[in-house]
Design a binder for these strands. Structure first.
Lengths: 242, 242
DNA sequence: ACTAGGGATTCTGGTCCAACAAATAGAGCG
DNA sequence: CGCTCTATTTGTTGGACCAGAATCCCTAGT
């Protein structure tokens, strides 16, 4: 056996996790503990090799992950610079538009939206202002003037986001932003089968009417129906393809 | 110069993009064009090397990305199996938050939890099994045997996570994982003022009792009270400090 | 002859290494 | 001031070995 001074990360890593995963975690910890801010630089790959006792390939694979997470921007000669593009990276995950959202993902997300949008009716009506109603009508009217499905889905998403924004809850808004790509995909799916200019439009209008009339039950009923219709379309689609 | 039959990917790659990025794109196209569904397998790394005309390390870095995107699940000897964990990965990007919990963040997150936990009572009771009740009692009993606040908070979090898990909704579970750091801080804050061995414990027990009795209203009332108590504590704390 | 068990083999991802290529920040020079 | 040149850093390559899971194959027992 050759004389090696260092013990490979392979041997020392915790059971169950790969060496790469462990190093990803160490890099995260490094950023957090060293108090590195946006614009600062990480040590070079070779320095990290020494520091983490791993080969350069392993460190590189870990760095790829951290880069994919949008935490660093790495350039030749310059090294890895701290950034924060996590939100935009989250969107990129779903740029794999060639692959369909799986059925379970779809139903989970729709159930989640039902919980958020229908479930928050009380607080929604508490905080509702005339301005909110105006905006919602305005957004919905844009739907009737659009001929592109992609664009119509964006407007549809805007409608639901505007609805949720009434709650004034940043945590919920952030989550809504993250699931935007999936929701868009779901909406596009629905709009290939239905005429958004008439059906989606009138369903939205019904929801706003109920809001304006402060009719909680009507609001919940119409909104839930609206979400469920999309679900039925998707289900049939899946049955047909599979 | 050695006689090489193949031209390195390094040379042939498009301007501006790395070879790894190009291969990620090709894998993506492969999944789309071959019509691979969840459960199917990708070719082996060595096969992909030949197919994409790249070295194994390059293919591996690309595969790491695809894996990080939640599109495949890679296991030794078995290979890369198609999955769809993209939503989960998208949320994972934000698990890096270590920011301070402001008062608004606190109240937003608690309202969010109320929406998720109290709002899903119907479906929760639909899906509830004896096993769930057993587990919840088990977790809660651990609370009485712990003397460390940090650890008690973890158990408290486990309790609420186990509760949510009854829904069988991956999207909601993922969201819960994301807000874990904030929730833990909230819980720690609450537990410095109250005795978790008696108060938190009995509140949880009350919630489980209501579940076991299939009493929806009692469940919602007790769970909401439980969440609100924490809110009141934190509010006072904040007033005092700020 | 047939089947179940177990051991050997093969295949695959995981890690490591030592080069070389390409890009570029920065030093040095005209 | 602008150019070139060098040193450093990331990017890519090909080759090697390891651990472990899947598979095959041989043997022993019925």
């Amino acid at each position: 056996m050759k004389s090696k001074t260092r013990i490979p990360a392979q041997k020392t890593r915790a059971i169950g996790g790969s060496a790469v995963d462990a190093i990803v975690e160490q890099i995260r910890a490094l950023i957090a503990n060293a108090g590195l801010k946006v614009g600062d630089n990480l040590p070079t790959e070779r320095e990290l090799c020494i520091q983490f006792n791993a080969s350069r390939n392993t460190v590189r694979e870990a760095m790829r992950i951290v880069k994919a997470y949008g935490l660093v921007d790495v350039r030749p000669k310059v090294g890895a610079t701290i950034t924060d593009n996590r939100l935009s990276r989250a969107f990129e995950l779903f740029s794999f538009n060639t692959m369909e959202v799986s059925r379970k993902t779809f139903s989970d997300v729709q159930a989640f939206r039902d919980l958020l949008e229908v479930g928050s009716a009380d607080r929604l009506l508490d905080r509702l202002t005339d301005r909110d109603v105006e905006d919602l009508y305005g957004i919905n009217n844009r739907l009737a003037e659009i001929s592109d499905i992609q664009e119509a889905s964006e407007v549809d998403y805007d409608f639901h986001t505007r609805l949720i924004s009434i709650l004034g809850n940043d945590a919920i808004m952030d989550v809504y932003k993250v699931i935007k790509p999936v929701v868009l995909r779901i909406m596009q799916k629905g709009k290939t089968r239905r005429s958004y200019k008439t059906e989606t439009y009138s369903e939205h209008a019904g929801v706003i009417d109920a809001l304006a009339a402060r009719d909680r039950l009507a609001f919940q009923y119409r909104l839930r129906s609206h979400l469920m219709i999309g679900f039925r379309n998707f289900s049939e689609e899946m049955e047909a393809t599979v």
